[in-house]
């Protein structure tokens, strides 16, 4: 699970070692990556919204 999160984080940054990417893709569970990606996207939105609301007070 942790490697999935790490890989998705790296993807968010747009960086990933070729070696690691290869491993991820050979792991063959795209679903896990997609779900993690969506959750983390939602998380990002949450953080930004939280900051915005906090700052606007």
């Amino acid at each position: 699970m942790w490697t999935v999160i790490k890989s998705v984080l790296a993807a968010f940054f747009g960086v990933q070692k070729e070696q690691q990417r290869r491993e991820d893709f050979e792991q063959g569970r795209p679903g896990a990556f997609i779900v993690t990606g969506l959750v983390m996207a939602a998380f990002l939105v949450g953080i930004l919204a939280f900051v915005a609301i906090l700052v606007s007070r």
Partner: peptide, 22 residues
């Protein structure tokens, strides 16, 4: 827009500069 919404959309918009820069 309310202040919080303006801030939120400002932050997300600035964020797009990152992948575009990449």
């Amino acid at each position: 827009l309310p202040l919080a919404a303006t801030l939120f959309f400002m932050y997300t918009t600035m964020l797009i500069a990152v992948p575009t820069g990449v």
